[in-house]
Design a protein around this nucleic acid. Sequence first.
RNA 1: CGGGAUGUAGCGCAGCCUGGUAGCGCACUUGACUGGGGGUCAAGGGGUCCCGGGUUCGAAUCCCGGCAUCCCGACCA
Length: 485
Amino acid sequence: MSTEQIPDLPTAITPQSEDFARWYVDVVRRAELADYSPVKGCMVIRPYGYAMWELIQQGLDRRFKATGHVNAYFPLFIPESLLMREADHVAGFAPQVAWVTHGGTEKLEERLVVRPTSETIIGTMYAKWVQSWRDLPILINQWANVVRWEKVTRLFLRTTEFLWQEGHTAHETAEEAQEETLRMLAVYKEFAENDLAMPVIDGQKTDSEKFAGAERTYSIEGLMRDGRALQAGTSHNLGQNFAKVFDIKFQARDKSLQYVYGTSWGVSTRMIGAVIMTHGDDGGLILPPKIAPYQVVIVPIPRGNWKETVLPKAQAIRDELVGRGIRVFIDDRESQTPGWKFNEWELRGVPLRLEIGPKDIEKSQVVLARRDTREKSSASMDGLVAHIESLLATIQRALYERALQFRTEHTSSTDSYDEFKAIMEGRPGFVVSPWCGSPACEAAIKTETQATIRNIPFDSPPAAGKNCLKCGSPATVHAWFAKAY
RNA sequence: CGGGAUGUAGCGCAGCCUGGUAGCGCACUUGACUGGGGGUCAAGGGGUCCCGGGUUCGAAUCCCGGCAUCCCGACCA
């Protein structure tokens, strides 16, 4: 079996090195993942992009169910008085909510907000549903859209309306709530690494970056190919904050009246943006097989009476692959040449392309082209399905390894602020540095370098004996800094 | 909300300085030949030149006002 490297060809896409932001938009639009809409700040998720979201949903939903959660649906509208109850929550979200003031022509007695997140409305319902410790825990997830009136929007990363899931749980004890918070963060990490092939740093957010109304916030953070970090998921331990405000009380085993301990956790369509920027190259999108709408695209080579010879063979292969649960598309359009299709499907990130023509049929083989390595090789028809299955698994693994290597190469550590500043100006990425825990130092670093603390990883090295990067006083932890989206 | 730029065919742009029939590339339609890395030829369709006002015989072009979008900063999944 011979292997050859596919030659580079110019695409309609701005190279990453020239302008990463533009590369990103070019890819999203040319790959037909999403498009701008006439509505300010809102995008249309096109079928190809939505198929990715459906695969992400399936992967996560299966994991949520496996950890005991069930799905439900709560209203899109939240009365003003509910949103306003929790002080920190109000301060965090009031500036960016959309208001509904009229129903038809009539002015509403009480304004409604379009949910920016659902802690308040769900908390209100939990107060009705919980009386006894026997009613706990409540483990509910919701797949929904939310609206946040952001000033700046970017396709998938930050739009006025976006799709997400939000889990909201209520527990008997603080320990249980903390376990749940960390359990779901671990689910996110495992999903990101296994299905998205995106290595992430899991850890705790600093106070200044934590969710409005939470006691503790945790996140997973990925590193994009331009060296900027992206928060890909968050999990919050709400303590008893919302329980006290919404009066979610239960009678405990010792007959006393107690407030529940809450958590909430979410990931959004932003994950699609994360995948694009973790794996993509100048040829366009590169999709991990597990979330690729088409894992294999078959391009039949139209020659002579190909419809009688090549096409049936391609269809037979397709049927066999589909029978094994592989997502396959035969691109038998006559309006495009094979070369055009090769480029198109590479641009759209399909992990594996299968070419089959008269020459292959003579030799009882096909040609396989990997998107990640851009290698082409021939493969025998015998055992083809098993070969493709193993290749897809190899690609999935290779993408993760490549992303992990990129992150390792773009992670440094320093105790010196001068060096820190130099790194942030030059080759960006994660920088691990000792920090005293003071919000003032954190804020000063952000102002001076644009870098923020992404989180404090669970496996962060001990900081005993170290001094804070910024102020020089004794450090309490090693924090992971980066410029972020 | 501050600083900068840009609005011309679906997309990317030229034309504007120096006013005179609205163009180019890609895409699209029809047909033929093609087809193993973005094919060739032929024939076509498509315009509120962002909006409003002004100057002028005549405005995409000059002047005034507005709006929108994008980029850079402060807020964010």
